[in-house]
Each structure stands twice: as structure tokens, then as C-alpha cells.
Simulated scan of single mutants.
Amino acid sequence: MPPHPVPAREWEFAGARGAITARIWPHPDPRYVAVLAHGYGEHLGRYQHVADALVRHGAVVAGPDHLGHGRSAGERALVTDVDDLVADLDTVVASARGDHPDLPVVLVGHSMGGLVAARHAQLHGGALAALVLSGPVIGRWEVLGPLLAADAIPDTPIDVATLSRDPAVGEAYARDPLVWHGPFKRPTLEALVAGLARVAEGGAFGALPTLWLHGSDDALVPLEGTRQGIDAVRGDDLRERIYPGARHEVFNETHRDEVLADVTAFVDDVLGPPR
């Protein structure tokens, strides 16, 4: 595949609570499907370089902008039930499987998208060949309690330096009009608490090969809180890569090429080497 960016095609479908915009990055002769689930407050357009790497590796790539995010409908950054996002993600997975019924599906979820992907794996793991969780919000996320206990949720913008050691990442995030730059909404916090509890109680991933990626210096979703969640859901085949000094967005870190190479090597190990 050529090294230049692969253009995405957008499509829209009726989601659980409103119209969802999804993207597809095509491949002329794919050997697997990769489905991406982005994090809270952002959108799938920030994953162009991830999609490019996966397409070059042999994947057709797809994913939604979650409800209330990016180009999808809904009040901005409002999530009232994580399972709504899971249902919308499953629509994309089912569509990709319908278009490519003979291909295995690899699900990649980052941050809140990791929570959504983990829940999807618990509910629909039989549809997946492999799961990748990047800085996932599962387990113990201590920021939720103090925010919910506050009379008024503070309108404090995210410190963009917590995203990556590459300052260009934070600068682009701060300028991005499709990124939510406002405060958490109380129903969203309550939905995340309920979603964390569902995943904690939802059982292990069984035989599903799972790769967990995390930065050791992740101040947004601290490593040890997530480790509790990983221990609750880990199945028979869990691999982990903890990157020293890396911050929250490991796909946007200064060593992003290493991270993406770890993902593609994992996929090759699960699916077999490219043709």
C-alpha cells in the first residue's frame, strides 16, 4: 500500500439514540477488519495515522464517532448509557462483517473507547478475533467520585500536556473544533460509573486474545486503576505493553511507530503472517 494517507469514506446510520457518523478506510484486498473506538470528548478523525498503519498492514478499517461526539448527532459529550455506545459500535462491527464475512475482526478501543470495546467483547466476543485496549477506562477511575460529589462540576479544560510528550499533539487537540472542550456533564459521569460496574461484573474475555497498552505516566487514566479492571476481565490470552514515560494517548506519543508496530505484530501473532 502507498505511504500517503488513505482517504476515509463517511456513512451514517440510525444509532441507539440518534444518527451516527462512521468512517471506513478501504483496502483493495484486506485480510482482516479493524474497528476503532475513540475516547471521550474526541472523534475518529484523530485516528487517521492509526488507520493508515492498519490499512498498510492489510486491514479495512472502520469506526463510529460516538453519540454526542465528532460528526454524530446528540448533545455534545453527553452519554447517558455506555451500552448505547456499545450498540452503535456493534452496528459498525456487524456492517463490516457483512461486507467481509470471511475476514476476522480486530477491535481497538482507546480510553473511554476502551471501556466500550471491553463491554462489547463481553457481550459479543464471539464476533471478534482479537481485542486491543489502549489506556482503557476500566477498573478504578478515581476522578469520578470527586467530580460527582461536587455541587458544580468544574469547567476546567484538560491539560493537553497530559495527552502526549509531543507538544504538537496537544496544540492540535486544543484547536480541534470537533473536540469537546467543556466540562463533564453529570449524566455522563453517572453513565461511566455504571459502565465501569457492568464491565467489572461482566466476566472475563475467555480465549479472546487481548493486548493492553498503557503509558506509565498516564495522568488522565492512571495505570494502577486500570490494572484492577484488567485483572477482573483478563482471559486466557492477555498480553500487556507498558511504555515507560508515555502519557495517555500512546498512539500519539513520541514513539507512536513502536506502539503501532506492537499492534500489528500482535495481529500477526493472532491471525498469522501476511500473505
Results as ranks from 00 to 15, higher is better:
G113E: 09
P26C: 06
H124D: 01
D99Y: 04
S164V: 07
H57R: 04
V179Y: 08
A51F: 09
V86S: 05
H57P: 01
V193T: 15
V93M: 04
G18T: 02
Y173T: 13
P154Y: 04
G109A: 08
V143A: 14
R241S: 03
V93N: 02
H43K: 13
R198N: 01
G139D: 11
D102A: 15
Y173W: 15
R247K: 15
F266K: 08
V160A: 14
V79S: 05
Q122R: 11
R241D: 02
N252D: 12
A194Q: 14
V199A: 03
S111L: 05
W11L: 13
V221A: 13
R241N: 00
T188P: 00
G215F: 06
G182C: 08
Q122Y: 03
V160M: 06
Y47R: 13
A130P: 01
P157H: 12
D65V: 06
A94S: 15
I153S: 09
T264Y: 09
E201G: 07
V137F: 00
F184Q: 04
L208H: 11
A73D: 13
P222C: 06
D83Y: 03
R46V: 03
G203V: 10
A34F: 08
E258V: 11
R17H: 01
L163R: 14
L189G: 04
H49W: 11
T254V: 14
G68S: 11
F13H: 04
V267H: 10
V270Y: 07
V33P: 01
H214S: 08
H49F: 05
G272N: 12
S164K: 13
G98A: 14
V233K: 13
G15L: 01
A14H: 09
R234S: 10
V250I: 15
H4N: 09
D90A: 14
M1F: 09
W11S: 10
V50Y: 09
D166I: 09
G235N: 08
S216V: 07
D88I: 00
P146K: 14
T91H: 07
Y243Q: 04
A37R: 03
A118V: 03
G135H: 12
G126F: 05
A51D: 08
A161C: 00
D218P: 02
